[in-house]
């Protein structure tokens, strides 16, 4: 394959089970560098599992994940692919950042520490530099004045914006967004989505979003994947998925979601 044509992320027949429950059943999925991809579909269809596999919070039961043309879920031992060990994962997940539905800020640290601990301890960035970068990022998400606050003193929307700054502080090439507005009060959703639009506009970070915000999906995505029962039911540019869906499953899902909005 030509390096230029190679997808940045490649799921090759990936299987993921939780006990007897098969969540992903031989999934193939490609994402190109710089692409903004949205994963939609009903709960339990495997969208979040894809992000968690990429963040190495879960491990595949079959198939292989490739990132940047190199094995990611696995590593080479000789010319055999074996499941990646912790050291290999640490080396290779450096380029990936994640924002969680429940924010997961560290309650024992100030906002500044939340944003600087990763770069300082995992990337060896000098404290001063990390702190300056934290100020920049917090300015971008509109929370520079909260830099010395504790997470418990912030609203959900503010916490989530700090969590976005924290993920960006690691200078990721790939950003995973797992239903980042689902836990927020409705009036706080817009502020978080604005920040994400800003990132989509101003950077070339590859983004994978699991979301129920169809308007946001339409605005920022290059491609939308409709999931159903661990398989991709349909994928395509947002105009097609939202404007002219082909599969009945997509139609009924969108109808249910959009009616709700």
């Amino acid at each position: 394959m030509e390096p230029g044509n190679e997808p940045l992320i490649k799921f090759d027949k990936v299987v993921k089970k939780f006990g007897d429950n098969v969540v992903l059943d031989g999934l193939d999925l490609d994402v190109n560098a710089g692409e903004r991809v949205t994963l939609i579909g009903p709960s339990g269809s495997g969208k979040t599992t894809i992000l968690r596999l990429l963040m190495t919070l879960e491990h595949v039961n079959g198939g292989t994940i490739w990132v940047g043309g190199k094995p990611f879920s696995h590593m080479y031992r000789g010319d055999q692919l074996v499941p990646a060990n912790e050291k290999y994962l640490r080396e290779h997940r450096k380029t990936i950042g994640m924002v969680f539905q429940q924010f997961n800020l560290f309650p024992n640290m100030t906002v500044r520490k939340n944003v600087t601990e990763g770069p300082v301890h995992s990337l060896g960035v000098p404290k001063e530099e990390a702190s300056e970068r934290a100020v920049e990022l917090l300015e971008m998400v509109g929370l520079a004045d909260k830099i010395d606050a504790h997470p418990t003193q912030l609203s959900g929307g503010q916490q989530q914006r700090v969590a976005i700054a924290r993920a960006l502080a690691m200078r990721p090439e790939i950003l995973l967004l797992d239903e980042v507005t689902s836990a927020l009060d409705p009036e706080l959703v817009a502020g978080v989505l604005d920040v994400l639009r800003e990132i989509a506009r101003g950077t070339d970070i590859t983004m994978l979003c699991v979301t129920h915000e169809m308007g946001f999906a339409r605005d920022v995505s290059d491609r939308v994947f409709m999931f159903d029962a661990g398989r991709i039911a349909e994928s395509g540019p947002p105009e097609q998925i939202f404007g002219d869906p082909r599969e009945d499953r997509t139609k009924s899902f969108l109808k249910a979601v959009l009616e709700h909005e």
């Binding site: 963040m55 190495t56 919070l57 640490r90 429940q102 997961n104 800020l105 024992n108 301890h121 690691m170």
Partner: peptide, 23 residues
């Protein structure tokens, strides 16, 4: 979820335990 957040920041077991979990 706290452990997961620290994995997302690529912290080692030791750093994660010392900075995030133990406190």
């Amino acid at each position: 979820a706290q452990t997961e957040a620290s994995i997302a920041l690529n912290m080692t077991w030791w750093r994660r335990t010392r900075l995030v979990v133990f406190p």
